[in-house]
């Protein structure tokens, strides 16, 4: 699909607006519909579109798998970290009231941080799954069985050799 000019131009044009829309859904979730789950999926969709039109290798250059896998854990850690922070500030787990001067402001901070963690985990999990599925390769996956097969043949051959020797 890399050589089709229509797909290439449209996916390049759409890439930035999709991510911008995802960020809007992420950070405007307090006021309109949306939030971390939806934004994460939308942002991952932009990367998946890029990976489908250009190749998986190009996508891996854009979003290295090691970073994507680290972000999966980082999002969940941010969420749990907000809970630990409220712990240390003297409130219950995930009680955002204590994060700022007055409770409503603290709740705003808490919700934005927590939604950011959710968005990070969802986006990187979906992107990681796409890369794992698209890069899945049965011959490489079952390399071990293939390695074992010639050895078996050799094992099967040796008794025949012995028979001829006898």
């Amino acid at each position: 699909m890399k050589n089709n000019p229509i797909l290439r131009v449209i996916s390049k044009t759409l890439f930035a607006p999709i991510i911008l829309y995802g960020l809007y859904v992420q950070f405007h979730g307090d006021f309109g519909p949306g939030g971390g789950f939806q934004a994460g999926v939308i942002i991952a969709a932009a990367f998946i579109l890029y990976g489908m039109v250009f190749s998986l290798d190009e996508l891996k250059l854009l979003a290295p798998p090691s970073i994507v896998h680290a972000l999966m854990a980082l999002g969940a850690l941010i969420y749990a970290g907000v809970g630990i922070a409220t712990f240390l500030l003297g409130a219950e787990f995930l009680n955002y009231d204590v994060l700022a001067d007055y409770p409503a402001k603290g709740q705003h901070y808490g919700i934005i941080l927590v939604e950011f963690g959710v968005g990070l985990t969802v986006a990187s999990t979906i992107l990681g799954l796409f890369m794992a599925f698209a890069g899945f390769d049965i011959p490489r996956y079952s390399a071990r069985e293939k390695d074992a097969k010639p050895a078996n043949k050799a094992g099967a051959k040796s008794p025949k050799k012995r028979a001829s020797d006898d």
């Binding site: 006021f31 519909p33 939030g35 999002g75 809970g83 409503a104 705003h108 919700i111 963690g117 959710v118």
Partner: peptide, 23 residues
Amino acid sequence: LHIPNVVTTVLASYRGFDTLGET
């Protein structure tokens, strides 16, 4: 909370622990 979207407040604040579990 001064947040107009009740879905977000329930999801992230009132039911924050559940959403942590989902994540």
